[in-house]
Design a protein around this nucleic acid. Structure first.
Length: 570
DNA sequence: GCCGTTTTCGGCCCGACTGTTTTCAGTCG
């Protein structure tokens, strides 16, 4: 039995939570959390790794390596059983409630035997909490408010959605008097696929004016916290926004600090300590004297590092690479020459191919591939042989009328359950590009799903595997597939994988991108656009690719059409 | 629980805000 990295990470996190509530050594707790984070973000499946390989990873020692191996093969940990005997497992859910951390959860359990959210609600409503030492009426109401507002376990917000909320908010903030600098920091700036909250950093002449403007913003439902330099609000849609105002000479260090990740920051501060310096959000200090911090660039430089782009700041090896001046030259939207996954109103798109081509051209592209659905997707009015043939003729005519821009004949063909393709080779082999996709039977076991894909790739006309895991963020998990085998299979056969840039897909994820890069497999970044504005999703795909350390050379569609076509030839 | 060109034991990042306090612990990022 193989257990996914995400599940192993969840178990490790559970141990950390339980240890936390047990008041275990906090560094021991941290070791489990670090391990959970590492495993969760790891491209390879830990189930395929040996004990000694895991031991090599930073923060993983012999003990954790053994536990990870056990978990990855469906084994039981005596430690976890023991912890769950001592602390009822439901208490970990209490940690998600704002205002409750390990100490207070422990107290709730000791004093009143509270071990579920339901019991906590009951006790709070009965007014039993404020008698517990260290608790008071204030905390009791705070907890009751949190419980009532459903603040518990809210799913993370899609980056694209966060952008729609944060950008106008920031624009509004700029109207405050005395604004000097401002940026959205946090996981938003690191371009993670989802954000938990929004962090904004500001340098301004008057803290007071900024705070005032921020807390009175029209979308604010509640001011959770408000001090002289920091404020937290909850918006009506439930999203939390933190604002931090600092002096101009601290702006760079504050921006860096609030961009994170937390793990990256800890490493930076360790480096500072090693050099006899101190790093905080106000700057880099030698004794009481500030020696850097006005800009991020200056900060990294003074620490002996090259500037690290926010997308890489995850403590995934970027610091050593920056020290050795080996940072990747990350791909950017400017490098993209065309879009290889585009739908039209021939199937479920909303614009004609002419309109999509014009929109792509207006973005400065040299080509797009028209990839409508195949017949199997009845819902989308998928193309059969006859309609596809007609579309190909139409593309020829369109190309005749275009100068310096190419519309590629292509398709997003369904990979059927047995790994055959939804249209015959005779027509597929006449196309410039064939994208294969799974739209059915997401429930196949891993071995079957993997073989289904490899079998489809066996066809010499097959070029790119679309949205390779099928996940929809917050909606549908990835289907079970051995990604390493799929990538190796693609490499051996001369085909490629897609990084689908739809904000709710972003499929492949960042770890997969790194895995592909380490194997030398190029990826196509494609929008899967169903309307003209969706061509703009390219930047989300590029952001994800940057998080995966990809450079222009690692991406298929960063080259002119002739080079692209020769790469596609099998 | 991890880690080490000062260490195999004794460290492990730093500050703001809140609430319950008489000087600070807990939580959060």
């Amino acid at each position: 039995m193989q257990v996914s990295n995400a599940e192993v990470a969840a178990e490790l996190d559970k141990i950390a939570d339980l240890l936390d509530v047990e008041a275990a050594n906090r560094f021991r707790v941290r070791a489990y959390r670090r391990a959970a984070r590492l495993v969760g973000a790891f491209g390879r499946s830990v189930a395929d790794m040996r004990d000694e390989e895991l031991d090599e990873l930073p923060g993983i020692g012999p003990d954790l390596a053994g536990k990870i191996v056990t978990l990855a093969h469906g084994g039981h940990l005596p430690l976890l059983d023991e912890l769950e005997r001592e602390v009822s497992p439901g208490v970990t859910a209490l940690l998600a409630i704002p205002g409750l951390g390990p100490k207070r959860v422990h107290q709730l359990h000791e004093a009143l035997g509270i071990d579920t959210v339901a019991r906590l609600t009951e006790a709070a409503n009965a007014g039993k909490l404020h008698d517990i030492p260290g608790f008071g009426r204030g905390l009791e109401t705070k907890i009751m408010r949190a419980l009532a507002s459903g603040a518990v376990a809210q799913p993370r917000t899609l980056l694209s959605k966060a952008e729609q909320i944060a950008v106008p908010l920031l624009q509004n903030l700029w109207q405050a008097e005395g604004m000097k600098q401002a940026e959205i920091a946090g996981s938003y700036r690191r371009r993670r696929e989802t954000v938990g909250d929004i962090d904004i950093v500001v340098a301004a002449a008057s803290n007071q004016k900024v705070m005032q403007r921020f807390t009175s913003y029209e979308a604010v439902a509640e001011v959770v916290e408000r001090g002289p330099t920091r404020a937290t609000v909850r918006l009506r849609n439930g999203l939390q926004v933190d604002l931090r105002v600092v002096p101009e000479e601290s702006y760079g260090s504050a921006l860096c600090y609030f961009t994170g990740s937390k793990a990256h920051n800890i490493k930076l501060r360790q480096i500072a300590v090693e050099q006899g310096l101190k790093l905080n959000e106000y700057g880099l200090h030698k004794g009481v004297r500030q020696i850097a911090g006005r800009t991020e660039e200056e900060l990294y430089e003074r620490l002996g590092l090259r500037y690290i782009p926010p997308e890489l700041r995850e403590d995934q090896g970027e610091i050593n690479v920056a020290r050795e001046n080996r940072l990747p030259q990350l791909v950017s939207v400017k490098d993209i020459w065309g879009d290889l996954h585009v739908h039209t109103n021939a199937t479920d798109g909303r614009a004609s191919m002419r309109e999509m081509a014009a929109a792509a051209r207006a973005r400065g592209y040299g080509y797009i591939a028209i990839t409508d659905h195949s017949r199997r997707l009845g819902m989308a009015h998928g193309l059969d042989v006859k309609r596809l043939a007609r579309q190909m003729e139409e593309i020829d005519r369109l190309n005749d009328s275009l100068n310096g821009f190419t519309v590629l004949k292509a398709i997003e063909v369904d990979i059927l359950e047995d790994g055959t393709l939804d249209l015959p080779d005779t027509i597929l082999s006449k196309l410039d590009l064939v994208i294969g996709a799974i739209h059915s039977r997401f429930d196949l076991p891993q071995v079957k799903q993997t073989e289904r894909i490899l079998r489809a790739m066996d066809k010499r006309c097959f070029n790119i595997l679309a949205h390779p895991t099928g996940r929809l963020i917050n909606q549908r998990p990835a289907y079970a597939v051995d990604m390493e085998r799929v990538m190796r299979g693609a490499l051996e056969r001369g085909c490629f994988l897609e990084l689908n840039a739809q904000p709710e897909r972003l499929d492949l994820n960042d770890a997969h991108c790194r895995l592909a890069k380490s194997m030398g497999l190029k990826l196509a970044i494609s929008t899967d656009a169903h309307a003209e504005p969706e061509l703009g999703f390219m930047r989300f795909g590029v952001d994800q690719a940057r998080r995966g350390w990809l450079e222009a050379a690692d991406v298929l569609n960063t080259r002119p059409v002739n080079e692209l076509l020769s790469l596609l030839r099998r």
